[in-house]
């Protein structure tokens, strides 16, 4: 009898397990986010470091306290709250007061993540939802961008995005690449973001389809609107790269099928173009991704793969 039990193991799927854990993936994402954070600290000084630390601590602590109070298994140590915390901090201007990331962190973890069922059950990206709430609630704080420490023209703090739609020649590609311009904490340095994004794709953590289709769609749209120069600079400026690599690739809130992921990326790119070019907000990256997040169940339904051998139903 003992031997029989050893030979016959009955278990439900999944049968093939991998050693990769949530914790491991989230640590890799943190590593990929590090260059952009370091660039932010270099450009905006101690304020940036302070905001990042407050944001991460708030997120982890909120998750821990909620799970303890609700008698749930505490998963606050899986680093996913750290990623959310980093992303919230990166979406806040370095001049913001300390309570901005605190409100954002509590909102993201408590309302968007835990109340909907914790990790894997959130309906939209928690960090982006928090950003949207902060942006709508305190527009003057979230929309005033401090100058970097190395800017020659210390009077102007307009973001490149505001200048680009007026006249693309006001901003140089080099400035955008190294990130020496006004903006939120973690979005300025394009090189650091591309570095982190490429790392995620090479390590197989992020699917290349979403960022590539996102960036290409936005590029083509701006190409049609104002030519190559504008298109290149629009892609490098603002939150597009941060969003495309780190936020639109969230596992939970993106379609699971291959065509679905292309639709997700293209939809983000198109919405971003429409908001930047025609709407009242200068930056539309977060709203574009959030909109596609809530579209995800519908995209999944339309792109559901066929069963092997499935035939079209007749009447």
């Amino acid at each position: 009898m003992q031997q029989m039990q050893k030979k016959l193991i009955i278990a439900s799927s999944p049968h093939i397990r991998d050693s990769v854990t949530t914790r491991r993936i989230m640590q890799e994402v943190c590593l990929a986010l590090a260059p952009a954070g370091i660039a932010g600290i270099v450009y905006f000084g101690v304020d940036a470091l302070k905001l990042i630390l407050i944001s991460v601590c708030t997120c982890v602590l909120t998750e821990y306290l909620y799970q303890r109070l609700m008698n749930q298994k505490v998963t606050a140590g899986d680093w996913s709250a750290v990623v959310t915390g980093l992303l919230i901090a990166y979406n806040v201007p370095a001049s913001a007061p300390w309570w901005i990331p605190v409100v954002g962190g509590v909102f993201a973890i408590l309302l968007v993540k835990q109340l909907f069922g914790g990790i894997g059950s959130n309906f939209a990206n928690p960090a982006l939802t928090a950003r949207a709430v902060l942006f709508i609630s305190w527009g003057s704080i979230m929309g005033s961008y401090p100058v970097t420490r190395y800017m020659e023209d210390a009077v102007s703090s307009a973001t490149p995005l505001a200048l680009l739609q007026q006249d693309p020649s006001q901003v140089s590609v080099w400035t955008l690449l190294i990130g020496n311009h006004g903006g939120v904490l973690g979005e300025t340095c394009a090189i650091a973001l591309i570095l982190g994004g490429v790392y995620l794709i090479i390590r197989g953590i992020a699917d290349w389809r979403i960022p590539v289709s996102f960036i290409c769609t936005a590029f083509v749209c701006f190409l049609l609107q104002g030519g190559f120069d504008l298109a290149l600079k629009e892609v490098l400026a603002g939150g597009l790269l941060l969003g495309a690599f780190f936020m639109a690739t969230d596992y939970v809130t993106t379609p699971t099928s291959v065509p679905g992921r292309f639709i997700m990326g293209a939809g983000c790119g198109l919405l971003l173009f429409l908001i930047r070019a025609f709407a009242n907000y200068p930056e539309g990256c977060s709203f574009a991704i959030l909109f596609m997040n809530v579209m995800t169940p519908m995209i999944d339904r339309f792109t559901m793969p066929k069963y092997f051998g499935e035939v079209k139903k007749h009447g």
Binding site: I136, S137, G139, I141
Partner: peptide, 11 residues
């Protein structure tokens, strides 16, 4: 205290 404007909107 800085009012949280989103509370005055439908969301």
């Amino acid at each position: 205290y800085q009012p949280m404007a989103i509370m005055n909107m439908v969301p």
